[in-house]
Design a protein around this nucleic acid. Structure first.
Ligand SMILES: [Zn+2]
Ligand SMILES: [Zn+2]
Ligand SMILES: [Zn+2]
Ligand SMILES: [Zn+2]
Lengths: 139, 139
DNA sequence: AGCGACTTTGACAACCATTATCAATAACGG
DNA sequence: CCGTTATTGATAATGGTTGTCAAAGTCGCT
């Protein structure tokens, strides 16, 4: 049986408050900053549990880190992620789902699963302009 | 300028001979088994170079390992991968490309990129039947 | 071919995210 | 309240990947 501990609630809550995908390390750091004495291993375990229960989505960052996010919708969906600020939009695309299934079937593959994520710069980050190391005042 | 060393050629060659995606560690092991004294760090560097030059595709395994594969086609494409034996099929899907671009644009995202991979069981692995841990003789 | 400038290599250490340990703690049914 | 038992968490261990740096190799040039 699953026991209800304040640690799990804290992770749930913290995950729900973050706008985009976060790593276990980041979530642990923010919880600690907020005064919680929660342990790192516990955050890893809680996030893994949330993911298997379907209450959180997970994906691998380009650097290979596991990132998690509270799912707004329980339905199957994918994500559009700002690679600058992490803001995430959930998107559904039945056409793409069908394409994935059909592609697998056409080549004799069974039990198809798929990884589909779109990364870009959100409107805010786009208008913020290209990132520069520093903006020395022009003399 | 890029210099031409037997190590880079060996990695290129070994990558081209493997049917599906392989990790740097696996490629290093097979090269060593074939009698090559190549170093592990060199394999990592060569694979990273091939990836940026567009001569190899890379993706993150579910366990977070970086996997590489020699690209048969220089065009943009995606992969259908057997999660049992690693056999890989390259697929193109203009519809999906357009969907990704349109989805990003619709939400004000710019410079869209995407990660699209389909995992399943190939025909051979499907007919091999469900995998069992062991088949103890029934007493 | 010989030379010199500049890359590349590789053994090894360092790094870092993630997982295993395991005694102490806390949740929950009765 | 109590006993059972899942959970916690500090720490160690794991394992893929990258950094270090002296030695060796590559290539343009003569
Ligand atoms: Zn943004
Ligand atoms: Zn989907
Ligand atoms: Zn297969
Ligand atoms: Zn594409």
């Amino acid at each position: 049986m699953k026991r209800n501990t304040w640690q799990r609630q804290a992770v749930r809550s913290a995950l729900g408050e973050s706008a985009g995908f976060v790593s276990a390390q980041e979530l642990h750091a923010s919880l600690r900053d907020a005064g919680s004495p929660i342990g790192l291993a516990t955050v890893y375990r809680a996030l893994a549990d949330l993911a298997v229960e379907g209450d959180a989505d997970s994906l691998q960052s380009v650097e290979g880190e596991s990132l998690y996010r509270a799912c707004a919708s329980p339905r199957h969906h994918h994500h559009l992620i700002c690679r600058s600020c992490g803001t995430t939009v959930e998107v559904e695309a039945d056409d793409v789902e069908e394409w994935a299934a059909a592609t697998a079937a056409r080549h004799g593959f069974t039990e198809p699963r798929h990884v589909i994520d779109v990364f870009g710069l959100c409107a805010a980050c786009t208008s913020a302009g290209p990132r520069v190391a520093a903006s020395p005042p022009s003399p």
